[in-house]
């Protein structure tokens, strides 16, 4: 047999093969990142524990009936107005918190019939068994948005040091990028303490 010169491998069809694979991955790829409203459930309470007494004025009652109608503090409202009402209630600040300090960062009306302090203000959501999930999420979202609004305002006004002038959402974004930063965590804790998220879900009525 005649020894032939070692000729190069023909790589002309490599592109075709690569294209084939490329198209396969293009078709199968899904780039959805899961996003959602993060909530933390309360820990399970023993049956016999009684809830601590809460004054009626510190409870903001949100009721959704089975026709997805919204009742806030015994009055029918539209979903668009819920956020404003919640802000008003949380930020009322007419009294003192558990440590006896008045709320000097609150800008509410200091009404006698609304909440005493953001740390005492409880928002309670009561749904019916057949309320739609979409409505429920909308209400949750509006209530959380109310807290975010207040926290942003507080952060912009009262934060000192290197985070001065930043909003709460800005800080959360910063926190995501960094590994661990005690200053940042302290700032966020300070805001969370000023406006703690107290959202309670009552069991749906049958």
């Amino acid at each position: 047999m005649a020894r032939r010169e070692n000729s190069e491998i023909n790589a002309g069809s490599m592109a075709d093969i690569a294209f084939l694979l490329l198209i396969f991955f293009l078709v199968t790829t899904t780039m959805d990142t899961d996003s959602g409203i993060l909530r933390k459930l309360p820990e399970k309470q023993p049956e016999d524990v009684e809830a601590p007494p809460v004054r009626q004025r510190n409870i903001f009652e949100v009721n959704i009936n089975r026709f997805d109608q919204l009742l806030v503090e015994e009055e029918e409202v539209k979903i668009g107005d819920l956020r404003e009402l919640a802000v008003k209630f949380i930020d009322n600040g007419a009294g003192k918190n558990a440590e006896g300090q008045p709320c000097n960062y609150c800008e509410g009306e200091k009404s006698e019939s609304s909440s005493e302090h953001p740390a005492k203000a409880i928002i309670s959501v009561q749904t019916a068994q057949t309320t739609s999930y979409g409505m429920y999420i909308s209400v949750q979202n509006e209530l959380l948005a109310a807290y975010t609004e207040l926290r942003n305002r507080y952060a912009k006004k009262y934060l000192q040091g290197k985070y001065k002038g930043l909003s709460y959402s800005d800080l959360l974004k910063l926190q995501k990028g960094e590994v661990k930063n005690p200053d940042l965590d302290a700032a966020i804790d300070q805001i969370k303490k000023a406006y703690p998220e107290i959202l309670s879900d009552a069991k749906p009525i049958k």
């Binding site: 996003s35 959602g36 409203i37 909530r39 820990e43 399970k44 979409g134 999420i137 979202n141």
Partner: peptide, 20 residues
């Protein structure tokens, strides 16, 4: 709640509530 899996996320797309 009964098994202490307390962190939950209600999966939703980002957009205005009015879309619901």
């Amino acid at each position: 709640q009964s098994i202490n899996a307390l962190k939950i996320s209600y999966s939703s797309s980002s957009g205005d509530v009015a879309n619901n």
